[in-house]
Simulated assay, not measured.
Amino acid sequence: MAHLSVNLLGPLQIYREKHPITNLFRTEKEQALLAYLLMEKGHAHSREALAEMLWPERTEGVARTNLRQALSGVRHAIVTGSLFQPFLTITNKTIQFNTECEYSLDTEKFHQLIEFTRSHKHNEKDGCPICIEKLQDAVRLYRGPFLANITNTDSLTFREWLTIYREQYFRQLLEAIQKLSEYYKTLGDFEKALRYARQLVTLDPLDESSHRQLILILGMQGNRSAAIEQYQACCKILSEELGVSASRETQDLYEKIKAGMLSGKQHSNMLSSFTPTQLTMFFGRE
């Protein structure tokens, strides 16, 4: 049986027996159809519902014709030789992705890695190395927003579906990166902590807590001028984009850094303030 590998995080990538076949999909709607069937593979979908979702502004007859053509394109793309592999279970009324076939999906791997870190039990006071490895694997899997290349859709229902998954995976990514930054900060590995903190600010520049994490790490690293510059950048973007000032917590951090209270011996004092309870918030339960 042929193996189908699909990556939905970032631009769609489809492989059959490790050979890329994404370019065999003729239209964005064909890609959207396969992606939808993969993500909602738990049950069969009526042809009527799929046609209405993907072509809402067409008449029922035209929408059903478009669905037949798109389905034909999907089947053609995933066929191996002259044999149609059972990646899809198709009847006159319904279509469903066949979960009994050989396939792999990056969103499933991503979800499994994140859920492992949430449920894993361990006794590490300074975070769990196993969970950290899982989080790093999850971050590497995330190539970009869910189905980043799907942009031209006239269906409100499909856009809402797309937005829900994009937001879900993006928030899980931010959570993973935040935990990694916190872990390395607690260990005193400021270079790695800084790398993840910068990534957070780049991904979500309007999140003040991400800026504060970056400011704190720069201060703990002894780079006071860079920390002050980051504080100023934070204040500017909050003012220009949201029309608000930095919170008292962020301002207090700035004042401490400006006064030189987070350099030298303050590193160890800051690290010792973390309790096992705080750490297990980020790395599962003891």
Rank of each mutant, 00 (worst) to 15 (best):
N66A: 14
L67E: 00
R68C: 12
R68V: 11
R68S: 15
A70E: 04
A70C: 08
G73L: 07
G73S: 09
G73I: 06
R75D: 08
R75L: 15
R75Q: 15
R75Y: 08
H76S: 15
I78S: 01
I78K: 03
V79K: 15
V79R: 15
T80M: 10
G81H: 04
G81Y: 06
G81I: 05
L83I: 13
F84Q: 15
F87E: 01
T89L: 12
I90H: 01
N92R: 15
N92T: 13
K93N: 10
K93W: 09
T94F: 08
I95Y: 02
I95H: 03
I95C: 04
T99K: 09
T99S: 10
E100V: 09
E100S: 14
E100G: 10
S104H: 08
S104R: 13
L105R: 03
D106H: 04
F110I: 05
F110A: 03
H111V: 12
Q112R: 13
Q112D: 14
L113V: 07
L113N: 01
L113T: 01
F116S: 07
F116R: 08
R118P: 07
S119C: 08
H120T: 08
N123Q: 14
E124M: 12
K125M: 10
D126T: 11
C128T: 02
C128L: 04
P129C: 07
L135W: 00
Q136M: 10
A138V: 01
A138D: 00
V139K: 01
R140S: 09
R140H: 09
R143G: 00
R143K: 12
G144C: 05
G144K: 00
P145F: 02
F146T: 03
F146G: 01
F146Q: 03
L147A: 00
A148I: 02
A148D: 10
A148T: 07
N149Q: 08
N152Q: 11
D154E: 13
D154K: 11
D154T: 09
S155P: 06
L156H: 12
T157K: 14
T157R: 13
R159A: 13
L162M: 06
T163Y: 08
I164T: 14
E167L: 14
Q168K: 15
Y169E: 03
F170G: 07
R171F: 11
Q172L: 12
L173N: 03
E175M: 14
